[in-house]
Nucleic acid binder design. Structure first.
Length: 669
RNA sequence: GCCGCCUUAGCUCAGUCGGCAGAGCGUCUCACUCGUAAUGAGAAGGUCCAGGGUUCGAUUCCCUGAGGCGGCUCCA
């Protein structure tokens, strides 16, 4: 009696009434769930009344999320096994893994994580099944009376609010439609554990197998607000196979090897002296050399693109940041003021009022003052003011992170003043300028993000925001790159496009930002004289390309894993004599290289030849030049590259032009 | 800022159940050293993050602070 007709993986078929998806895919072990009429469901779902069903395999994005979400449930079961007093928060899948939040008396330790992993292993081996059960709000409240956080989630859902908006990850618990509880059933049918959950889940815990691992514990605010209590979060990862787990851990290890903080110390590039202060880097000679090259090339390109260079102080009176509204909006992100010039008499009475000076967190107010230093004509626009401007932001102590989140850093900051008519063309050419320049530093995989207005945190009228947003969107779209929306991500004064770049190991970094600003020109009453003699207000574009030089330095350091292309490498050539008698021969070659502007050194130390090769290789020097008797007699040198390949007997003049060409063309070797 | 962990030689890390502090690498010295990733020997190097407390005695235990790490919140 084949009386159900439906599309199965796109093929029209007939099945008996009462057939479930797991009947359908009984032979396919990698199918862990199904999409019925577009909705993800457990394999146990009956197909009555269904018009289309598709398999969800464990290695698909949906399948991986289901695997990880089920692993989170197993973790929670394990935690409550070990500690029955632990209260459950939420436990969603995330990129590469999952987490689960718990309210517990004592935070988790690495030892408890190990014990929990063992407990999870036992649950997995039991082969528990996940059973979905629809409950009413009241039933759920009764069953979960001992779980205060779950009750709160039920309340949120009841209030009609979007649960996923109310708490990141909460959507995985209560979803939008009916409320469901998932029971974990032992093989004898007994309920081992249960959790409020939208599902779907794996058919059996066995599928989590050997591919999971608990990674770390940390505190996290309940429902993501620092006003709420902190729960203890356990992060884990889960993969369909052990091999994939191992590969994932290897990716993490590779990222750790490339960590710019580690490479920065190893390669003697920069440090954060405790005596200076948290988040305030100092650059050592080699690091400063890389910076210099980064900046010099950028300067040259900016000159070619018609920018004017300015220089402004690091510190200014409070008035300037009152005008710019920074003190209204970001005072807590700024270093506290220095109160200067106050005079008191013998009684301690103020006889001359002092005033507050602030370290600058942004350069734009200063650049506005350059604009308004004299009358401006439409003929000067677009006026592009550029500065490597050092700024200071008082980042919270817990967020400071190497060069990527520092308290003092240098923006490659430009402010472009245009007419409204010029704005669109200027933005389009600006975006291609930005992308071209980033490519020259070795990054070439980009996407764009469009950050739009946050009504809670913005100045100005909606119509102006709409216009600005529309123009940015058009420019971004016409670049042909992928455009990802970032609603509410804009600064208070205008929407922005940000360029996200992927590095050598696939991580994305937010680099350049291009920000439209219709409001600061008002605040500073900026004006130019138009062709008809009227006074007009310019539009302002904020633009940082590296974002911060320090941060971009860190990104490049990790991207290249320290092996910079020759033009950026702090030491471009190390000359290694085969034995001491050839020191002078190589000193002469190095002198010629230096005369050609190459950063070259001879290793005249006491180490033996092989050790010198090893040292140069570990220092990631792009060109190692070797000479012994053969080379010296032929007036030649031999190249050894970082990967161990050789090019022997190259005549010195040819070697020099080979090196200088590679530097000039900014190629990697 | 919040939670947890950490801070010992220039670097990476041992160690001391409270009793004069250790290794490898690096540095320095001497000898050795002619073809592509570690020659050997010796030496120097420490307020065991800082301040306070407990103790006959603190690098070790307790408190406070600084700095770092992993998250959370934040990131103009």
């Amino acid at each position: 009696m084949p009386d159900l007709n439906l599309l199965i993986d796109g093929v029209e078929r007939s099945v008996e009434v009462g057939t479930t998806a797991s009947d359908l895919y009984a032979e396919q072990r990698d199918v862990v769930a199904v999409r019925v009429d577009g909705e993800l469901r457990d394999l146990a779902v009956a197909l009555d009344g269904v018009s289309a069903v598709e398999a969800v395999t464990i290695d698909s994005p949906d399948g991986l999320s289901i695997l990880r979400h089920s692993a989170a449930h197993v973790l929670a079961q394990a935690v409550q096994q070990v500690n029955p007093d632990a209260k459950l928060g939420i436990g969603p899948p995330i990129t590469d893994g999952f987490y689960y939040d718990f309210d517990v008396e004592e935070p988790f330790t690495p030892e408890t994580l190990k014990a929990l992993e063992k407990a999870m292993q036992r649950i997995i081996k039991e082969g528990q099944t996940f059973r979905r059960r629809v409950v009413s709000d009241d039933e759920a409240r009764a069953e979960l009376a001992a779980e205060p956080y779950k009750l709160e989630l039920i309340g949120l859902k009841g209030s009609g609010a979007d649960a996923s908006a109310a708490a990141e990850g909460a959507g995985a618990e209560v979803g939008a439609g009916e409320l469901t509880i998932y029971d974990n059933l032992r093989r004898d049918g007994a309920t081992a554990w249960k959790d409020l959950c939208r599902g779907p889940h794996l058919p059996s815990t066995r599928l989590i197998g050997n591919g999971f691992s608990l990674m770390r514990s940390a505190a996290a605010y309940w429902r993501g607000s620092e006003k709420n209590p902190q729960l203890q979060r356990i992060y884990g990862t889960a993969w369909p196979t052990k091999d994939e787990l191992v590969a994932y851990k290897e990716r993490l290890a590779e990222a750790e090897r490339r960590d710019h903080r580690k490479l920065g110390a190893e390669m003697d590039l920069f440090s954060f002296p405790e005596e200076v202060g948290s988040g305030l880097p100092v650059f050592h000679p080699k690091g400063a050399t890389i910076r210099m090259e980064m900046e010099d090339y950028s300067r040259r390109r900016h000159i070619e693109a018609g920018y004017s260079f300015v220089n402004t102080p690091h510190i200014t009176k409070a008035k300037l940041f009152q005008t710019s509204r920074h003190l209204d909006w970001y005072a807590e992100g700024m270093y506290p003021p220095m109160h200067l010039d106050e005079v008191r008499d013998a009684d301690g009475e103020v006889t001359r009022a002092g005033q507050d000076y602030y370290l600058k967190p942004m350069n734009c107010p200063m650049h506005n003052l350059v604009f308004s230093a004299r009358g401006r004509s439409y003929r000067e626009l677009p006026l592009r003011l550029f500065e490597f401007g050092h700024v200071y932001r008082y980042e919270k102590s817990g967020v400071v992170h190497g060069l990527t989140r520092a308290r003092g850093f240098t923006q490659d900051d430009a402010h472009i003043y245009t007419t409204r008519e010029q704005m669109r063309d200027e933005l389009a050419s600006l975006l291609s300028f930005v992308l071209d320049l980033l490519k020259d530093y070795g990054l070439d995989d980009f996407y764009l993000e469009l950050s739009t207005r946050d009504p809670e945190k913005s100045v100005g009228d909606e119509a102006t925001w709409d216009e600005a947003t529309r123009v940015l969107e058009e420019v971004a779209t016409s670049s042909g790159l992928e455009l990802v929306p970032d609603p509410g991500g804009a600064a208070f004064y205008g929407p922005k496009i940000s360029v996200q770049a992927k590095d050598a190991i696939g991580r994305t970094w937010q680099l350049s930002t291009i920000q439209l600003d219709f409001f600061e020109p008002d605040l500073f009453e900026l004006e130019y004289t138009a062709s008809d003699g009227s006074r007009q207000r310019p539009v302002m574009i904020h633009r940082a390309l590296f974002g911060s030089i320090e941060r971009f330095f860190g990104v490049l350091l990790e991207h290249y894993a320290g092996a910079f292309p020759p033009w950026l490498a702090p030491v471009q050539v190390v000359a290694v004599p085969v034995a001491e008698p050839f020191n002078d021969y190589l000193a002469d070659v190095v002198a010629q290289l230096r005369a050609a502007g190459v950063r070259a050194e001879v290793d005249t130390g006491d180490d033996r030849f092989n050790k010198k090769i090893r040292t140069a290789t570990k220092d990631k020097v792009p060109f190692v030049l070797i000479a012994g008797g053969e080379d010296a007699e032929a007036g030649a040198v031999s190249f050894r590259y970082r990967d161990g390949t050789q090019r022997n007997g190259v005549p010195v003049p040819e070697a020099i032009s080979l090196i200088t060409d590679a530097i000039r063309q900014r190629v990697q070797v």
